[in-house]
Each structure stands twice: as structure tokens, then as C-alpha cells.
Design a protein around this nucleic acid. Structure first.
Lengths: 210, 210
DNA sequence: GTCTATACAGAGATAGAC
DNA sequence: GTCTATCTCTGTATAGAC
């Protein structure tokens, strides 16, 4: 929860930047120090060792919007917003892709996910067990209220999240090479429309053809 | 195109395994040698240096089914298969997640994607410019033939690929921790059904309600 | 809290005998 | 083609002066 200040903050920000660009292992203490503008040994006044900076980075991820999609809100307060809720979530995914700080955390996460079991464990529990299940619950409530058609709520949750994550990945990747992201950026909204049309209740008495 | 043999193959296979588990940078020549059962210096009889093993790994990725989804087939030969084509593609994504060798390449790719510009460039051109565009072309032909409803073909291509990639990622991740993948595995088929129902032409004269 | 100096381990790579 | 031995560089981390 603590926010770093002064030199410690500089060290942390620089480290995260380098971790995102090159990976944790490839980043050296000398590199970090040089970029901060201090001697390498001075880092140890702020962080016990290199792993402590890694831990701080993981903590940052835990607090980020990449994981905390619903903040503290419960399905019961959310589901009535219907299509608007999905639009809000979709837009949040989009904003994250363009937020410079969160973009770093995203790249850091993707690299370490496969060689850091602790991070994988955390991702599984927080992102999956938490967010996907919460979204499932929301869809379930929407079905009960006949806002959307009956279907497998867990499938809907996955089908809604998957493209958002995928488009986020593409944008972060394209941005890393300073390539245009404009096409990919439009997909967030298009996905939500496309998806909503698939799941919404279509009134039988009202004929779309005429 | 060359397939390695004997010691060279052992070195390559071991390296790819370690790259997938720990990342390229974290893997040492001594580690590779130890696991192969030779002296560290003996590696240099087979590969010029560590980077040459990395290059070979990237070449392996280029040849894999992760990238070569349509092999050499053209949209014109494929689109008529309709729903079956999508089922085949979906099934291929699923099989890759469980194929031990391709699973390694997938993990290797995900880690290096963010710190290897060359790999990113290749991924962008081959996966995106090639596969997504090819699938777009297929959907476009399906629309012309009135197999599916009119829509943005590029959107459909993305919406179809995104969950497949996402589910693949989840399975590979779960497998890394020896966790159950059975729930995730069912999503490939469910996605295809869910998606096809969304896009297929629904005959106006034929009423589904009765 | 930052510096210089240094310890020490581990990295990639080469030389030359067999 | 593999071995032993070794070089050189670079990595993390600590000690102690200011």
C-alpha cells in the first residue's frame, strides 16, 4: 500500500520500466543505478536486494486495475446496469492499454507469468477465481432478470473477457514498437456491441425484419 | 527446415525446455550442458554461441502450428466448409495446448515477445498480417455466399481468434502448475458454437420459436 | 544516504590435449 | 566431438569513509 518517495520511487519506477522492456533477469542493478543517476551500491539503502524490487513490482500489480476490475463492488449492485456495465469494463481495458504506468505492469506480468510460480498462483486466484467468477455471477443475475438470454454464465464471462485481454495484449505489443494502434483500439467497443447483440433478450413479439 | 540429430538435438530440446521454464536470459550454458550430460564447452561444437540456440528456437516457432494455422491453403478452398472449418481451427488450438512440444514453444514465445523486437516483428507479420487477414477473407467469402450474416470481416476474425488464444494461454499456464485444465478445455468447442450461432444466417421463413 | 573500493560467484566463450 | 583448464567479463552484494 505504501507509495515510494524520492530516490526510492525513482529506483522503483526505473526498475519497473527496465523489467517491462527487458525482463527481470536481464535487468542489472548497475543499469538501474545508472539510469537513476546514483551509484549501484546506493540502491541497497532503499531495497534489501534485487528480489525486493521484484516483490514491490508484484505488489504494484496486485493493486493495479489489471486485477481489480470490479474494485469492491458486488454483482448485485452492478448487474442492473446491463449493457452499460459491459461498456464500462470494456472501456477500462482500453484505457489500461494506453495508460503508460499500467502498460509497464502488463508487460512485466506477461514476461514473468511463465517463470514465476508465485505470480502465476496469484494471477490465477485473483484474476480468475475472483474476476471471472464475479462476472459469471453478474451474468447469472442478468438472466434471472431476463435482461439477457439463458446460457452458461461461466462461458459468457470467458467469452466477454477473452477478447478484451487479447486486444489489450495487441495494443501493448504494438505500442512497444511505436506502431499504430488505431485499428486495434476500435475493437474494444465493437466487441462489446457484437457480444451484447449475441446475449441480449430479443423480444419475440417485435419483428426485426420489418 | 533442418531437423537436428544426436547431441545437437539433445542440446536444442533441453534449451527450449529451459527457455520455456525460466526464460532465455536466466538459462545458462552450464545448466543446459549438465542436463544434456556433456561438458559446457562441448555445446560450442554444435552451436556457435547462446544466441544461435535462441535463433534456432525462433525458427522452430516459425514452423510451428502456432503460426501456420492455414498451412498453404487459400481462403477459396476453405470457406465453403463453413462451421466445420471453424471447428477444425478451434480444435487445432486445443490440441496445441496439450502438445508437449508446442506448449514449450508457446511459453517461450510469450516470454520473449516483450523483450525481443525481432520476434515481435515476426509475430506481428505472420500471425496478424497473415492469419487474421486470411480468416477475414474467409468470412468475407462466407458472407458473399450467404452462409453467414453481413458484418465486418476483420472484427469477426479477431472475435473468433481472441478466445482461442486466451483459452490456450490459460491451459498452458495451468499445465505449468499441474493444475486441472478440464474446465478450460471445454471452452474451445463452446466458443465455436457460441460464435457460430452469432454469425450464421438465420432463415427468416423458418421460425425457431415453434 | 551516497560514495569508492572490493569481494566473490557465475556468466559466456576459447585453447589445446585426447 | 568431448574433455580439462582457463580467460575475461559482468553480475549481486558488502565494508567503510564521508
Amino acid at each position: 500500500m505504501e507509495e515510494f518517495k524520492g530516490t526510492k520511487k525513482k529506483i522503483f519506477d526505473t526498475s519497473l520500466q527496465l523489467f517491462a522492456d527487458q525482463g527481470y533477469k536481464a535487468t542489472t542493478m548497475r543499469q538501474i543505478a545508472k539510469q537513476v543517476g546514483i551509484q549501484q551500491s546506493a540502491i541497497y539503502n532503499h531495497f534489501k536486494n534485487k528480489e525486493a524490487i521484484l516483490d514491490a513490482s508484484i505488489n504494484k500489480l496486485k493493486q493495479s486495475h489489471l486485477i481489480n476490475i470490479f474494485e469492491d463492488k458486488e454483482p448485485q449492485e452492478l448487474y442492473k446496469k446491463g449493457r452499460l456495465l459491459l461498456k464500462n469494463i470494456s472501456n477500462m481495458f482500453k484505457l489500461i492499454s494506453y495508460d503508460t504506468k499500467t502498460d509497464l505492469i502488463f508487460r512485466f506480468m506477461m514476461q514473468e507469468l511463465f517463470n514465476n510460480e508465485r505470480l502465476r498462483e496469484f494471477y490465477n486466484e485473483e484474476f480468475f477465481q475472483n474476476n471471472v467468477k464475479k462476472l459469471s455471477a453478474i451474468f447469472f443475475l442478468m438472466m434471472q432478470d431476463e435482461i439477457i438470454e439463458n446460457n452458461d454464465p461461466l462461458l459468457l464471462a470467458n467469452e466477454f473477457f477473452a477478447p478484451l485481454f487479447f486486444y489489450q495484449l495487441q495494443i501493448v505489443r504494438l505500442k512497444a514498437d511505436n506502431k499504430s494502434t488505431s485499428v486495434a483500439a476500435t475493437l474494444f467497443e465493437k466487441h462489446t456491441e457484437f457480444f451484447w447483440d449475441r446475449i441480449k433478450v430479443t423480444m419475440p413479439q417485435q419483428d426485426d425484419i420489418f
